[in-house]
Design a protein around this nucleic acid. Structure first.
Lengths: 353, 353
DNA sequence: ATGAAAGCGCTAACAC
DNA sequence: GTGTTAGCGCTTTCAT
């Protein structure tokens, strides 16, 4: 493996100069720099991150902490993070908590974060007080993508705004019987997001003088299949909501499937709205509140990278944009007394055998 | 940051002994080892991977090369890889090619793979001859998850077997008008897989004396929305197939949506089968050929880790299991002359406005 | 069973 | 503008 010495020898300068030249530091004559670069290219020299990390303390790597890989939002954020990291010459390593409680404790005792990464980007993690303390003690730039966390930087949409957008849309269509299928999974991930959306759902109803039916909230852990189940329960009886606000598009898809199986027409019998604007939402015709996880990931990466260079972002919390996207799953509720949907033939695709 | 010296001083032994004790090497007295371990725990010592990597050449990290994060199969494999890596004290570096052609060339000139990783696990990549050469020149254990690649280890299902399973099922139900929505995306990823499935689709038809209609193959790049479009084209006219074999479950979902929009009943008017057994397939009622990407990822990780210890797997190619999973999207075709599906009301959910 | 010492490949301080 | 010299924190012979 060719080392900095080879390049130095080949060029006839010292290793220090090679190092400076290649890293674009000042105090290198243009000619020398050229020569060094040429030599490096010629010899196929690639600096060793280990050696550089050891001597400089900079590893040019950041840890990306993620609850699990099964959610669209996370993988999109990771794409965004990765793209700017790579562009800046940083590597990303995955710290997949894997939804296992055990992993989580090891997070900070892990060599990974402590001696391998220059910064941490955590997605959808609800850090405990203790964890926040530990994170801070690591003394490295850290940022959360998702709900704001006390004492940490964060980037994410304002969940109450996003929810309000969805709820206002439904209410303005004339809905007052609005259920919510919400978030939070078993491992204390995304709890804050789930809670914020749920609270905002309640608040929106109250704002409009609509009584909150607590039995019209069901948690589905941000996942599609449980959301389908939840929706089936919600939509089965005659006393059912006319609209469902799902905490994520993936859950909204579950609602659409359930509605289909029950023979309910969307949007006539039930309106459905989500949050995310998942890559498949257009194909589903889903009305939703769009956010841009890739951009959020890229922003987060930018911020920690800047911080590594001493540039500190002003606001601790960056609010990402979100906006209503109208498609085909929302409409005014049917007037009272209209023919019930149970008369309709269930969609064959989704029918039970 | 506490270093090995601290532990040595604290215990009253040399750093060499600490190193040996902590890594479980022989020639350390039980008492000493105990003491060292206690001290390490006490002081919260974590070895620096950079230092260890520099001196030993082992970085305890593997690079995971992935085309992009948007496909279920990949993220599942990554979960599997990551779980065994982590368990063995290795970190996973993501190399997301990001579907951009530029990234790909930089792959091997990247410090990551050359000086940061001990091994490479590549998902769904069709390496060129040149790339294979480069990979080999890296002199590190490498394995591909997906289609076999000449000269490289691999783990994956036998695509012709999986396809045959699906096709036999359809044929045995009485189908002879079977279309295929297949893979391969724009960036030369998964081309081999796509090709193998397409060839096997053709072969299965021929085996049963069914003429191959080349216009009944459409490529959708392993993605759902394009598959929906393809299915719409395929299923629109009167001269349409009675069954669609999709190269992945995600594409099969697209077919289901298209069928719903067209007012076709599944499975009465059209049968649909996929490959994968995606986490949502059960909710969709999709009949499919199940594979286990997490297991494949774990297997791949095991193999390279073993190889790092000098244990070489016997077969270059590990064939992962796959099996037919019957659900509700396949059935015998309707007898000729039966009422056409166009009479049915399209599913409200999926209806165009 | 343990220690001393060299060195992995780079960066950083300090000379010049 | 460039070279010299120390390390960074480990692992690894080689002694003992």
């Amino acid at each position: 493996m060719t080392s900095i010495h080879d390049v130095a020898r080949y060029t006839g300068v010292s290793t220090a100069t090679v190092s400076r030249a290649l890293r674009g530091l000042p105090n290198v004559s243009p000619r020398t720099r050229q020569a060094v670069q040429a030599a490096a290219a010629e010899l196929g020299y690639v600096p060793s991150p280990s050696a550089a990390g050891l001597s400089s303390g900079r590893h040019h790597a950041v840890g990306v902490v993620i609850p699990y890989m099964g959610r669209w939002f996370y993988t999109e954020v990771v794409e965004g993070v990765d793209s700017v990291l790579r562009r800046e010459g940083y590597d990303a390593f995955l710290v997949n908590l894997g939804a296992g409680p055990g992993e989580r404790e090891r997070l900070f005792h892990n060599a990974l974060l402590r001696k391998r990464a220059d910064a941490v980007i955590a997605l959808g993690i609800d850090f405990s007080k203790e964890e926040r303390r530990e994170l801070r003690s690591l003394q490295m730039p850290a940022i959360v993508v998702g709900a704001p966390v006390r004492g940490l930087r964060s980037v994410g949409i304002d969940d109450s705004v996003a929810t309000a957008l969805a709820m206002e849309h439904l209410v303005s269509l004339g809905h007052s019987r609005i259920a919510h299928i919400g978030g939070e999974n078993d491992y204390g991930m995304d709890y804050t997001v789930a809670l914020a959306r749920r609270d905002a759902w309640r608040a929106a109803l109250q704002t409009h003088g609509i009584a909150v039916r607590e039995d019209w909230f069901i948690s589905a852990g941000f996942q599609m299949p449980p959301a389908k189940l939840a929706a089936r329960a919600l939509l089965s009886g005659p006393d059912r909501p006319t609209a469902v606000f799902a905490g994520s598009d993936e859950m909204a898809f579950g609602v659409l499937l359930a509605a289909g199986e029950l023979g309910l027409r969307v949007p006539e019998d039930v309106s459905v709205i989500g949050i995310d604007d998942h890559a498949w939402s257009d194909a589903f015709g889903l009305t939703t509140v769009r956010q841009h996880p890739q951009v959020q990931g890229a922003t987060a990466a930018r911020i920690v990278l800047d911080e590594l260079q001493g540039i500190h972002a002003r606001p601790r919390t960056v609010r990402a944009e979100c906006s209503l996207v109208l498609r085909r799953t929302t409409a005014p509720p049917l007037p009272q007394g209209e023919p019930a949907a149970t008369l309709h033939r269930p969609l064959a695709v989704l029918e039970h055998t």
